[in-house]
Design a protein around this nucleic acid. Structure first.
Lengths: 201, 201
DNA sequence: CGGTTATTTTGACAGTGTCAAGATTCAGAT
DNA sequence: ATCTGAATCTTGACACTGTCAAAATAACCG
């Protein structure tokens, strides 16, 4: 972690990531420019290019960091407690993560990276791993409690979509207000839980 | 509709909207620049500024168009047929709308408009109206079939979030692949339907 | 100490949104 | 029919963006 000051700047790579994160929080994705970032780091406009191939690579690095946090949270929350309780906690924690770090969440799942500028291999790996962890732990929690002919992977996808959709509506302020969080998340949890003990039509 | 050629260009306003839509489909949001657009319309860089206050206004106009399509679809699908069938059709149509017009969908619900550059009043109106129509029709369909203490508005929000989240994952290619559409949407429908005849925990 | 390499800088280019000022063309009143 | 004012369009300019090429600097290793 401590890469001990080396030469010109010290450890520019780390400084850039750190400063980029605060800039992201202050001004959002659209306010995060490499030039502003360089200036904040006290370095010239093109210096960052020796630590990140281009802007996309920098953004992917930020997203990767955030995903590793998310992954850790998933593993923490969905341990072998009761299935109902576990899922409830997961949903609440997920919502908290997203609403407390809206800019990073946007980066993680937003178009900027996944459409605009091809995600890094590293990012794709950890992003998919997070979901896989979720799917696996969910399958364990629900073992034997699922209606027949219900693939647990599909449940994982559908439930993630529910929580993810809720986060996006919340963050962008569409259809769901901040003050609705409690009630709507309860309803979403009910939605997910209901499907687990009920045969699909 | 035919505003009969007037003077310099003809009807630039309409031409801009039209050309912007094709440019959007061809190159995505990030490829849609006012200058390219102006060139396509055969007009100078700043001409569009006499028809749209700024780029944001243009994007909002595009999104407004798309929302009116969506609104129409909602009213069409959720008519007083069977509730189960109606909801199923709605979900399928919604998914079709989003996956066939991914760029417009991104515009409608994306950060570009709702965070980056303040949505127009016109847009906010029709966007909210679409949801209100959905909520109203859903409430009608589910009248008397909801578990006690379940607010139909919350059901509307949670179910919209589910479908919306699914669309975003699909469009951006995260966690849900194109080939999974059928299965996952079935699972999502099951998710929504299950909550309607089951008391929440 | 010298040379290779890693790091940073300066200069430049194309592209972007948008403003100010001028030029053109239309529409309506005299 | 002509003049006037408003609508529409163009040219020029500015600040900002990401990124490349080439030069300058500092570190490291033999």
């Amino acid at each position: 972690m401590t890469q001990t000051a080396r030469y010109h700047h010290g450890d520019l790579h780390a400084t850039l990531l750190q400063e980029a994160n605060t800039l992201l929080n202050e001004q959002g994705i659209e306010g995060l420019s490499l030039r502003k970032l360089a200036e904040r780091a006290g370095v010239s406009r093109t210096a960052p290019y020796h630590h990140f191939r281009d802007k996309n690579a920098l953004l992917c690095a930020l997203a990767t960091q955030a995903f590793s946090q998310l992954d850790e949270m998933i593993n923490r929350q969905l341990q072998a407690t009761g299935s109902q309780e576990g899922i409830q906690n997961f949903v609440r924690e997920y919502l908290r993560f997203a609403t407390e770090n809206p800019e990073q969440y946007e980066l993680m799942f937003g178009r900027t990276i996944w459409k605009g500028g091809e995600p890094t291999d590293e990012l794709k790996t950890i992003a998919y791993r997070s979901f896989r962890h979720y799917a696996e732990r969910l399958a364990t929690l629900l073992a034997g409690r699922l209606p027949a002919k219900t693939d647990s992977l599909r449940v994982a996808q559908a439930s993630w979509a529910t929580v993810h959709g809720l986060c996006r509506l919340l963050i962008d302020g569409i259809y769901v207000n901040r003050e609705d969080i409690e009630t709507v998340s309860e309803q979403s949890i009910a939605l997910i839980m209901a499907a687990l003990s009920q045969p699909s039509s």
